[in-house]
Simulated scan of single mutants.
Amino acid sequence: MSEPKPIDARTLKRRESMIEAARELFCKHGLAGTTLEMITAETGGSRRTIYELFGNKDGVFEAVIRDCTGRVTSVMAGLELTDLPLRAALIHYGETLMELLTAPDTIRYMRLFLSEVPRFPKLGKVFYESGLMAGRRIITSYFERQMNEGTFPKGDARQAAIFFSSLIKADYDIRQMSYIDWEPQTKDLRSHVIASVDMFLRGYGFDPQNTA
């Protein structure tokens, strides 16, 4: 699916309102159960407007995916980590990531997107690339910078990002998607992130207490 063409501010506002309305409708009714008429009933406009802005309903769904994942990755990309010591930077990154990933809305959207993947595998790829991989590229870039500055062992930054992300994420997202109404407590998330960061650092030969 192609990226939307540049549009004026008024049309952009209409597009954003359609994405917001469609997101809630998709969560409630699923992709198959949501019609273009339901979206336009919430936002005004017409089917023609949707065709012009998104191409078709699948295009609306892709836009919803990109919007939801983009909100998470934009927060992560905006983190100021450069001036922090290594351990503090990784803890800050990990806590922010877990707060975002375990937010109730994030879990709702993940359930929606993953439920539609078998029928729309191309959209599954969009979800993976704009979500998980976008976030992984952010932390990969961080490790690359640290390697170049000599504050982290030289090696495969991408592999380090995979190890780190896996330790931080653990099974929290799956547990929340499986156990309806279960939410981790902030203090438990912080303890988990700190333990994960220290385990990661020890794996790369650091004494966590000397990297604080």
Rank of each mutant, 00 (worst) to 15 (best):
A170I: 03
T35N: 07
G94P: 05
D156R: 07
D188Y: 14
I7R: 02
L53M: 13
T211V: 14
T106I: 04
A195W: 09
T96G: 08
I107V: 15
F120M: 14
L53I: 11
S130L: 01
N210C: 01
D105N: 07
N148I: 03
I19M: 08
E183V: 11
W182T: 07
F54A: 01
F206Y: 09
I107Y: 04
I19Y: 03
A89L: 06
G45N: 03
V60W: 02
D207H: 09
M133A: 04
A134W: 02
Y179Q: 13
I65G: 00
E80G: 09
K125R: 15
R87V: 07
D105Q: 08
E37T: 14
R137D: 14
L114K: 14
Y128L: 15
L189P: 02
E80D: 14
Y128S: 13
Q209W: 01
D181V: 13
T69E: 11
M38Y: 02
E144G: 13
E52M: 05
E80Y: 07
R10L: 14
D173E: 15
K187V: 15
R71H: 09
A22I: 03
L167P: 00
K154P: 00
A157W: 03
G124K: 11
Y93E: 08
P184A: 07
T211Y: 00
I91N: 05
F127P: 01
